[in-house]
Amino acid sequence: MRYLSKRKYAVIFLMASFLFPLTSHAESISAERQATLKHLLIQDCGSCHGLRMKGGLGPALTPGDIADKPKEGLVATIIHGRPGTAMPPWAALLTDQEATWLIDQLLQGVSP
């Protein structure tokens, strides 16, 4: 797995923080949208990361795999993707707030 250099990461993070203030307002995501996001997480993220988030073409995303990683970086990975890998940018389909909510779900652990 190739990782971005720290500097590139910082740039992406700064851009992300400028465009989308990194505050979580999970309560402002409607219950209906949360259900859609949960479904997306398990079924569509799960296509590469596994329905149980134990990895596949993409890396494992269980709480144990991601708990020690900076949350902002994880959110930025969802929004901007990871160039050079199969991870696409989801900015066209997800807001930063929704990506943050998804990371929160992963940190709590999800299962189908």
């Binding site: 569509d44 296509s47 590469c48 199969a86 940018p89 989801w90 389909l93």
Partner: peptide
């Protein structure tokens, strides 16, 4: 795909 910007691939 020359000349066309490749789109994000949400499923392989």
């Amino acid at each position: 795909g020359k000349g066309n910007q490749a789109l994000p691939v949400y499923k392989m």
